[in-house]
Write a protein that binds this DNA or RNA. Structure first.
Length: 281
RNA sequence: GGUCGGGUAGCUCAGUAGGCAGAGCAUGCGCCUGAAAAGCGCAGGGUCACCGGAUCGACGCCGGUCCCGACCA
């Protein structure tokens, strides 16, 4: 927000797998109406929490948003968020398609070993890149091999390719101790702002999509409402899981050599501002 | 004061007819093409409460001390 305001003529593209869901506001720390009236935001509130939404949809929504911003003569500032979604937006990630019937059949197979040896036959290259215990990725690779009749590994270079794309990428890094403290404070703030109530209302409107259901905090508080554990336990779990996620985000982005890192000590706005100005000149 | 149970990794706990210890979680690191706030892998970490004894050898056996819990008085 501060960067967008300082620079002027800048619009924000949210790159966040959970902020795309309407009514999930407090727990996703979604920009408020006030924020949005000060700086135009895109890619927020795209679907109902009960609807299925994937990277692929995000790719088309976000690319269109960027085109729109550029067409209006403004600068697009993408704020991430979700590593895979950012890759889908700024790099050439092409999704090979979906074959639900094949998927269903694969899900029926009880043994990962069987699935893995099948992948070794159909696509040895993909098999080498995927760990034999990672059922999720094995299933998807097989789905594509069987469905398309072509090896999954021929889809493209994947998320590990970092071509020049003209995007200026800036990463914000906190030391772990401060990060942990900020996560904890943020979780408590969300609770004070009525997070539990938001989850209650969400549950009342219907069953959430598989993705929305797993959102940090929503999951833990929902389990608390099911009586699985106390509120204090749910909040503690939320803190731990959020901290782990923040570190996982850091690890995802750390690999990208195109990112310029800013180590923040205390005041993000004051410390990031000047450096950003230099990069965005 | 007595009896019984317990004191093992940061946390919760396994364990060994005596041969220098393990799991889950946490932590660190890595992977990642349609669930990605998801999914998966690897690693570090312990004078086994303390002191003494018998034994080639003790976390394990014997004696004592200290702490925690339950019950009894």
């Amino acid at each position: 927000m501060a960067a967008a305001i300082t620079h002027g003529n800048t619009q924000i593209i949210a790159c966040d797998a959970m902020q795309v869901y309407r009514h999930m506001d407090i727990g996703t720390a979604k920009p408020t109406d006030n924020d949005r009236s000060r700086v135009a935001h895109h890619c927020l509130d795209l679907v109902e929490p009960t609807e299925r939404f994937t990277v692929s949809e995000y790719q088309s929504y976000s690319r269109q948003a960027v085109r729109q911003v550029h067409a209006s003569g403004a600068r697009a500032l993408v704020v991430a968020g979700t590593g895979l979604y950012l890759t889908a937006l700024i790099d050439d990630l092409n999704f090979p398609g979906e074959w639900p019937d094949v998927r269903t059949e694969l899900e029926r197979e009880p043994s990962v070993e069987v699935l893995y040896s099948r992948l070794q036959e159909l696509d040895p290259t993909a098999a080498r890149r995927i760990e034999p215990s990672n059922r999720r990725r094995i299933e998807r690779a097989l789905e594509v091999c069987i469905g398309s009749g072509r090896p999954f590994s021929e889809t493209g270079p994947g998320t590990g390719a970092y071509p020049d794309n003209g995007v200026v990428q800036v990463g914000i890094l906190w030391n772990r101790e401060t990060l942990a403290k900020r996560v904890e404070e943020r979780v408590h703030r969300m609770m004070d702002n009525g997070f539990l109530n938001e989850v209650r209302e969400l549950r009342a409107t219907g069953s959430l999509s598989p993705t929305a259901r797993q959102a940090l905090g929503y999951k833990e508080l929902s389990e608390h409402l099911d009586g699985k554990y106390s509120l204090a336990e749910a909040v503690n779990a939320m803190i731990t899981h959020t901290r782990q996620f923040a570190v996982r985000q850091e690890r995802w982005f750390r690999r990208d050599p195109r990112i310029r890192w800013i180590h923040v000590e205390r005041d993000p706005v004051a410390e990031i501002g000047p450096i950003l100005s230099e990069y965005l000149r």
